[in-house]
């Protein structure tokens, strides 16, 4: 397992595999399936300042090679996370986790981080900037360099842990946003979040999702995600955590060759609760069959 070790800002991971935010909760629903201590880390479900129910159901639609979700960041709020969830986490998982922070205003991100700073088990924050900014007309923080930079700086200013900024693929030029958050002090970049999409039920003649639009994830988005990791790697020097459609060990290796220092598996967990377990166990012999001893040597090799 030593050969699978990877280093991220503020964290050393026993392997580069972690579940992506929103597809694993805080891990409690997976302990019936396997001992989750084998995971490199866990990216938690979104944490917002106040409890959120999210969008009305239906919130899920199937698409070719993937799914749409419009959960709407349902979570119990930061107070409950600090008082009721994080205290129970060590009983199922002993390594550091990455807390996914979401908000509708810059002040909300700041408030969540301040409240989470005291939680020792959090190794870093993943700032989900795909949320609409309600103060600035509902446009997502992620689509505008100035806003992305502003929220990164504000988080950095109050954070006692490294800040990883999670980029949205729903932009014209992801490199611009990546450079902006790097310049604003981000310690790492995670990408990609979901791509916007929709489905219509031909029987009812209505959108399937109550929210009409939802986030596309799963194998359908993998080529897009891989391209964005590759592109961002060429243009920034901070580490990247890659995600989007990973289902197999081969996918993991592709993302790392494109430039990811570690990867996250999202939707895969929903259809195969054992997916992370399976990949962790296959990875070492797989990279060795490709001629690599240490997994860190894979990072960015596709760039020559």
């Amino acid at each position: 397992m030593e050969n699978l070790k990877v280093t991220l800002p503020g964290m050393v991971l026993q392997n580069p595999i972690m579940p992506a935010s929103g597809t694993f909760g805080f891990g409690f629903d997976f302990v019936d399936y396997y001992d989750i201590n084998i995971l490199g880390s866990i990216m938690t479900k979104a944490i917002t300042q106040h409890p959120r129910y999210g969008n009305a159901v239906p919130r899920i639609a199937e698409v070719t090679s993937g799914m749409l979700n419009a959960i709407g960041l349902q979570n119990l709020g930061v107070e409950e996370a600090v008082n009721a969830i994080f205290p129970r986490l060590p009983s199922i998982y002993r390594h550091k986790v990455i807390a996914n922070v979401s908000g509708s205003t810059v002040e909300e991100y700041v408030a969540v981080i301040k409240a989470l700073n005291k939680v020792d088990q959090i190794g870093a924050y993943e700032i989900n900037i795909s949320c609409p900014n309600i103060k600035e007309g509902g446009m997502a923080f992620s689509v505008d360099e100035t806003m992305a930079s502003y929220v990164t700086k504000a988080c950095k200013a109050v954070s006692e842990k490294p800040i990883y900024v999670k980029l949205s693929p729903n932009v014209t030029d992801i490199v611009k946003i990546a450079k902006a958050v790097e310049a604003a002090g981000a310690d790492a970049i995670t990408l990609i979040n979901t791509l916007l999409g929709m489905r219509i039920d031909v029987k009812t003649r209505k959108p399937v999702l109550n929210n009409i639009y939802g986030g596309l994830s799963g194998p359908a988005i993998k080529p897009v995600a891989l391209k964005m990791v590759y592109q961002v790697y060429r243009n920034v020097s901070i580490p990247i955590i890659g995600m989007g459609g990973i289902m197999t060990k081969e996918d993991v290796v592709e993302f790392m060759m494109a430039g990811a220092s570690a990867v996250a598996i999202g939707t895969g967990n929903l259809v195969d609760p054992m997916i992370c377990h399976t990949i962790v166990h296959e990875l070492e012999s797989y990279i060795s069959s490709l001629g690599f001893e240490k997994i860190e040597a894979l990072v960015g090799v596709a760039h020559g």
Partner: peptide, 14 residues
């Protein structure tokens, strides 16, 4: 309800 996972992970059926 429409389900993403069926075992509590995705909040799709909440």
């Amino acid at each position: 309800e429409r389900m993403g996972c069926g075992f509590g992970a995705c909040m799709g059926c909440s």
